[in-house]
């Protein structure tokens, strides 16, 4: 059974790229446009991993990570945040919120797959 990964980003092009890459590698992908959308879609879905942007409207990445970790079903799933080099403090915040790791933007498809393999197996 293929694993399901949720990609959360307000940028359609980033979602597109992440989704394309992951589907190509055999994963099932669920897309969400922001934190709020993600929280709605995650309940009841068999999501094995979340890849989220940090800067998003409605509910941002940090908030989303905290919220997901609070859900019993997703307490231990890997969560990867997309950051930029300049967001070191945000990265720390994300980590203390419960993020598993991060990918620095811009990134290449095989970097993405490398990180997914690292945390999801």
């Amino acid at each position: 059974m293929s694993k399901t990964i949720m990609t959360v980003d307000d940028s359609a092009s980033v979602r597109q790229m992440v989704s394309f890459t992951l589907k190509g590698a055999g994963y099932t992908v669920v897309e969400a446009v922001d934190g709020k959308d993600a929280l709605t879609k995650i309940t009841g879905a068999p999501v094995n991993m979340v890849i989220t942007d940090l800067n998003m409207p409605n509910l941002d990445g940090i908030g989303l990570i905290r919220a997901i970790r609070a859900l019993p079903d997703f307490k231990f799933i890997p969560i990867i945040m997309l950051t930029t080099e300049s967001q070191d403090t945000r990265k720390q915040e994300g980590k203390s919120a419960g993020a598993t790791g991060w990918i620095v933007k811009p990134f290449k498809p095989d970097q993405l797959l490398g990180v997914v393999k690292k945390v999801l197996g």
């Binding site: 890459t21 498809p109 095989d110 970097q111 990180v115």
Partner: peptide, 21 residues
């Protein structure tokens, strides 16, 4: 075999991932 990766591989043609292997 994977239309989308054709793009990917040409993008990554010149360097390798930093966080992967």
């Amino acid at each position: 075999d994977s239309a989308e990766r054709e793009v990917a591989s040409s993008v990554t043609a010149t360097d390798t991932s930093t966080t992967g292997q």
